[in-house]
Design a protein around this nucleic acid. Sequence first.
RNA 1: GAUCGCGUAACUCAGUGGUAGAGUACUUCCUUGACAUGGAAGAAGUCGUUGGUUCAAGUCCAAUCGUGAUCACCA
Length: 876
Amino acid sequence: MSETKKNVYNPKEIEDSYYKLWEERNYFEIDGNKSIQKSNRYFTIMMPPPNVTGKLHIGHALTFTLQDIIVRYKRMDGYKTLWQPGVDHAGIATQNVVEKQLLAEGTTKEEIGREAFLERAWQQKENSQNAITSQLRKLGVSPAWSRERFTMDEGLGNAVKKSFKQMYDNGFIVRDNYMINWCTHDGALSDIEVEHEDHMGKMYHINYPLSDGSGNITVATTRPETYFGDTAVMVHPDDERHNHLIGKKVKLPLIEREVEIIADKHVDMEFGTGFVKVTPAHDTNDYEVGKRHDLEFITIFDEKGILNGYCGEFEGLERLEARDVIVKKLEDTGFMVKIEDHPHQVGHCYRCKNIVEPYISKQWFVKKEFAQKAIEKVNNGEAEFFPSHWINSYNAWMSELRDWCISRQLWWGHQIPVFYCNDCGHEWVEEGDAPTSCEKCNSENIYQDPDVLDTWFSSGLWPFSTLGWGNGEFGKGTLWSEDDMKNFYPNNLLITGFDILFFWVARMLMMGENITGELPFKDIYLHALVKDEHGEKMSKSKGNVIDPLETIDKYSTDALRFTLAVLAVQGRDIKLSEDKLEQSRNFTNKLFNATNFLQLNQEHFDDLDPTNIKTPLGRYMLARFNVAVKETREFMDVYRFNDGATVLYRFLWGEFCDWGIELSKASKESVAELGSIFKESMKLLHPFMPFITENLYMRLSEESLEEGESIMVKAYPTVSQVDDEVIKQFDLIMEAIVSVRRCKTLIDKGNQKIEKASIKLPSGSDVEMMRPFIQKLGKVEELSFVDEKIANCVTDVSDNLETFISTDDIDMSAIIAKLTKQKEKLEKEIAKLNGMLNNERFVANAPKQVIATNRKALEEASDKLAKVEEELKGFA
RNA sequence: GAUCGCGUAACUCAGUGGUAGAGUACUUCCUUGACAUGGAAGAAGUCGUUGGUUCAAGUCCAAUCGUGAUCACCA
């Protein structure tokens, strides 16, 4: 049995049940906030669809929390709000997960066949989607679940075919033989799917004999096994060591095939031996050289990496295993001159970590020209990055774009909607149902391209395909409606991690622009990665992974959400730590206990009506609340989640609890008003902490969610008149209280109750209004207000007032030390201000406002100094 | 090599040209009738370094050091 502590907030009791009710009542749907919707206010944000490969991690928790904060804010602020949920089929990643499952069962995808394999993949999709969506519910997020989509559902499949045809017809999609990145496990990859890693390899120096028998040349290579594909050796034309050999022939070791020595400026004379083997079919640079010199392209291994007949006796070996065997043979036969250590970078498949090969293959590509307009429009300000510096990365990447390889040799994905006729050779794109005969010659001897599309092709359409674009009749009226494109496109905002800027964001921008004529969203917020408390990337091997569900279990959903929000500073890594989570947890507890306090006095509190706030303290807290509302809204509007959260923390804890509640103990009649303000501030906080705010709002309204309407569909607070006068009055009250407390520490009374104190206030202060607050919080039985300094007492001098407490025998040295320090500080300040104000150029150039502020500060500091000096004189 | 961040109190970090801020930790005190997951008071910073612009620089500019990320090339 776990003990339940009194006065400790227990979130577990409410989180699941509230969520269930919210969802049942359709609050998350686009008309969930019907009663507060304002006309023509629409807000759309797409959920980046999680991969159906597993479960949520802390990065998901961050991204979805931030999205939910904005969505709840907009929904409460009267927008018709669409937060579009869904999941991504994640081609390679999911296929690999399923393959691993099969492997564990002792079988393979080839053994069970394409159909059975796809069945397994769909099963994986179901399992993962269920896990993910139930975890998302735990996070308290509020997407329009009724519209949940999957990138491979029929409607999105239709959109893929339609957009493919459009791009094909416009000449942006072509099929060609290119040198691409080839993974012998996963097939063709786009450039960004290859990760380059530092690796300590070897540099092999190999002798190639000259055909005329006049000697050898030595080439240097890191990949000796590729020499069977060499079709030339090149030297720099200006290389005086070697250029006399241009035009001569050499024989490749062992196989004795002859290749020519050619001249090409690509060679770096400083590097290696100056002789470079040219393997046009297996190296990106050599590919270009090969094209320049019209060389033969010899491919030496098949799609699985198995060496072919060009490799002589090594035929049948796997490319990686072959290296050592070949090297051994070259050593034995004397062709190997030397082997040195050589650090270099090796490309790996981003999904299976296999070493990627440059490989010539016939694939489908999206031409790089496709991106042109999206580059221009983003740079014209039609979309905006938060933080803004990301536009640099966007431009850098976009300007170096190469054609995007979109065909994948996988089974799991959108099959390419291109058909070929075996009889007449016709090739065409079919955007409708699969045809049974050739559209040109009517032959039934046709087949569909067996490859599937890069997973990012369909996710690139996500901002509009989910709104019904190209869906055909699928889902019409249930998953989407005909007004959706008009109302929700372009989307207002995208929130996602910077790590998929190129993979996804850039692709959405170019596809959206080309296919709909408009960029798909206006604002692009890119958040950082969640790191551990030391700033280390989380990884299973390091054992520093923070699991969102465990965290929720320990600290509550609200605490996790608030922590992530408070740490989400634009442009900085998020270092998540237990300390921060504890702090947020404590904050929820504080709010819970504030409610307990309010309800000691009365059970029910009305909703806030500013005109009904009459007591001075009520008016003061209302004024502070207004400041908080203004700041929170301003920060939300520019996606400064950390600042918004900090404002709320400061207001609710530092102002409402520490001062408002404490002061109300001297003003019982203000409690009813404070309760109303607190209820309203629960609305303000709701987007960050949806559960506790609902709970406390309901408690203070004496309602339950079962009977009442949720806080999540009530109007977000707006700013009413801020009463500056009452803020001034209470600033003075608080200054007096702090001064009394400080004075008491001088006589070692801590915060104990004392009998008498005197305060000298500025003239015109409303002393009778102030008295009860100062007496109560300063813990003074008898408080008197005086016009002159009192003899024989300790004194505290603050900006606007002085406090005196009579004393007989106490050690004065501490007091003198304190006053002396205060004096020095004031003198320094006065000197600084004087320096500025005596500077003619400052007075001539600075804004009047600044000069006035400084004059006033100087005056106040001088006054204060005079008082401090007078005190010191008394001790002399 | 190129580009982009970051460097502010012991720690984690805000800071939008106008007297340097928060939370945690620390020191001292308080179990006061919401909360010890709490309250009060306090101490703590040559804002990486050096120049420059400006009446005024943590903030803008340049250089430099440290640190991190991304992209690219190395046969």
